[in-house]
Design a protein around this nucleic acid. Sequence first.
DNA 1: TGCCTGCATAGATATTTATCTATGCATATA
DNA 2: TATATGCATAGATAAATATCTATGCAGGCA
Lengths: 316, 316
Amino acid sequence: MNLRHLTFRLLEVFVATVRTGSVTAAARQLHLTQPTVSQQLKRLAEAVGEPLLQPGVAGLEPTEAGSELYRAALDVTGRFDDFQDYLAELRGGQRGRFSIALVNTAQYVLPCLLGPYSRDFPDVDVTVQIGNRQQLLSRFERQLDDIYVFSHPPSLEHALAARFLRNPLVMIAPESHALASLDEVRSADLSAERFLLREPGSATRMLFESWLQGQGMQLSGALQMASNEAIRVGVASGMGLAVLSQHVLPAVHSGLVVLPVREFPIDSHWHFIVRRDRRLPHAARGFLQFACARVEHCLPEEFVCNEIAGLLESLG
Amino acid sequence: MNLRHLTFRLLEVFVATVRTGSVTAAARQLHLTQPTVSQQLKRLAEAVGEPLLQPGVAGLEPTEAGSELYRAALDVTGRFDDFQDYLAELRGGQRGRFSIALVNTAQYVLPCLLGPYSRDFPDVDVTVQIGNRQQLLSRFERQLDDIYVFSHPPSLEHALAARFLRNPLVMIAPESHALASLDEVRSADLSAERFLLREPGSATRMLFESWLQGQGMQLSGALQMASNEAIRVGVASGMGLAVLSQHVLPAVHSGLVVLPVREFPIDSHWHFIVRRDRRLPHAARGFLQFACARVEHCLPEEFVCNEIAGLLESLG
DNA sequence: TGCCTGCATAGATATTTATCTATGCATATA
DNA sequence: TATATGCATAGATAAATATCTATGCAGGCA
């Protein structure tokens, strides 16, 4: 028997024996029979290669080597208890890390959840990835992140999704635009307008194009820009109209108006999406639980659409 | 599988895998096959209840729980390495404790060995017991000490003995005594003398009485005193004669003379005695080795009679 | 496409383990 | 001296272990 094959259990037996000063008492304490403890101690002494216990005034006393082993055993089991505590926190979602990937648009709302979450769970490291839909789909395919936030969820074959926030798409125009004064804008009114669009594949663009198709229309002229901010500024400076998430608009619409287009706003939702074939870190689940409980308080209530509970349920 | 049954070996396997970032490399390092390591890691992960490793950029990387386990494993194995170092010192006799029991007379010479020994081995705690022969025999029977120093060894059935120092017994008288002026004192000259004796059972007394018996004599009058010092002072002040170990006499015989008695000095020796049925602590053996090597330097060479090597040999 | 490299799984097996009951033996205690 | 207490040993056994060989499977590279 080699020291290598020592188990924590064996050390526990030894510690109990030293503490009680009696094999029999240790056995009782550990719910074992006395011979079992005797034998474990024998094995331990063999492994160490020195006698560990000797009869003393108050029952068994540790020898010189036994005392040192006792100290070592306490240190070692103490260290492992710490480890177990750590594990417990990890499992409880109080500690650990997870990464969440957001489509550009969602970066306007997610911080309202992530901020309070981080304050409540300071020992969780959150990595936030932000990209356009294309980039996120690639990350999703490569399983790089724990939670994804999409407006238009990808194939759900290997994933679960839950809506949590309405994401109305509105059409914006410069304040001075002719259509801005109408009570209602019809699709026909838009035929001559030039639009500023996000890149193809963007959910916002996909939804707008599908609306146009429904109206039997095609875009007359379009300008493509890769960022919501650029589009907003572009619209304000008269480059054209655009369809954007309402969350992207600043609280004070500096130079912009939302056009009262018929059938607008286009309804869409943000989803939390997790892969089923990837182990969800406890911390990530903790975040979803947090979101489920607090989304109403952290985000404007009129937008909230909390289906996270179902997702958590499906995760088991 | 429970955390209790974790072995240090398992932690080693894990550490090697984390360090190399590869199951195969770890297996090579540990002289195991790759499947063996795979399986050990699986068991470990099961025991912990969390995944510990995941594919990363540079081979396998520890997960959150894995990193913490790695830290814990390093701490724990480090602590046990310390313990092993301690054991090594213990085994080398550089550390530990032992107790040695001396008959009264030997306390005049043993410090000459124990002093230098303690200086060379400061981490060894030595307990010195001193008593008369009776007390020491009792301790010997009860196996209370590791090494005994007797002049007249007890039954050697369960013990080994080795002489290390001559212990000549001389007869002393006050300077002014009539016999002090003779060239040779014969036993007949002593018949009228009163003797101061140690308690019955004392080796000195036993040897003297056996000498008397050899001369066909009996003591005319005797005074019993329990201490060598008391006897010495008693003789100096004219209470009678005495037989004492030569080592007991002060360097300058204040008021005492050694009588040139025929057949004197009576030859006896001090012995180191160890029980065969009691494990000798490494430190005690270390002391004997020290004594064997240094007795010539630490004690007057004319008295040395070093048979310790044989004792050490018998101990194996 | 086909071939390495590296990890995981399956199946086999000798050894070790953890644990029990029964019993022996020494030392206190009545 | 008898009895109780406490430890050690023996023998038995189900379970777990440590380890192997053989094989499957995925990702990277020519």
